[in-house]
Design a protein around this nucleic acid. Structure first.
Lengths: 109, 109
DNA sequence: ATAATATATATTTATATATTTATATAAACA
DNA sequence: TGTTTATATAAATATATAAATATATATTAT
């Protein structure tokens, strides 16, 4: 899509969902919905490289899914809104019920 | 990720979110949560090509986000679960509130 | 059987994205 | 001020994915 295109609500929503649609980003979000965490803690808990985590956090922040504050050496990130958690929980429920087939999905992953 | 890797819950969830994370697929889902629709109707309403719609519908079906039934020449698709609608609505709310910045997100789209 | 309609699949091409590696910035403290 | 610690950015690479094009399948009716 060219930069000049006016994005519709649907396009913006789909963009928002991309925050959740990558395994690395979602594992970060799942940490953030439980409470604050520093980049280092996220690196430790996820096993992802520091620059990779940093890059995903930037993405999540720009999209408004995460917020940050600095405290000395550390920068603490957190989920921006309780609805981030709700969305993840609904996906969990769907997965347990109707969406079991996602495991076999051939289009991606 | 190699095919042999055992996927974690987080990976499966992120995969589920990919159903929502593409503009074309989300516009299809938004039609399906309003009620049944044939492939032809979806093509007409979205302006996407028939093979493209078909391909996305397969993706959505395999992941368990959509169901289908044949009636003569036509195949009717529908959202598999009311939670599909709920997830979209929560994203809408987030977009209206905390996630306004998604518009400027530079990582994708 | 054959034709018409509706939908699905395969292949290719273009593009988007995640990850790695290397380097830079920012804050705290000796 | 120089050094350490924490985090961010840039560039390069590898991979994943969407969409276009062409073709195939399935259902119904003639």
């Amino acid at each position: 899509m060219p930069a000049t295109t006016v994005e519709t609500g649907t396009e913006l929503k789909s963009k928002l969902f991309r925050g959740f649609s990558d395994g690395s980003r979602l594992s970060i979000l799942e940490i953030l919905v439980e409470g604050d965490a520093t980049v280092g803690e996220i690196v430790e808990q996820t096993g992802l490289s520091q620059p990779n985590v940093s890059s995903h956090l930037r993405c999540l922040s720009e999209c408004g899914l995460a917020l940050s504050r600095r405290d000395g050496h550390h920068i603490y990130y957190r989920a921006s809104d309780p609805r981030v958690h709700k969305i993840i929980q609904l996906a969990e429920e769907l997965l347990a019920d109707s969406a079991k087939g996602v495991y076999e999905c051939t289009r991606y992953g």
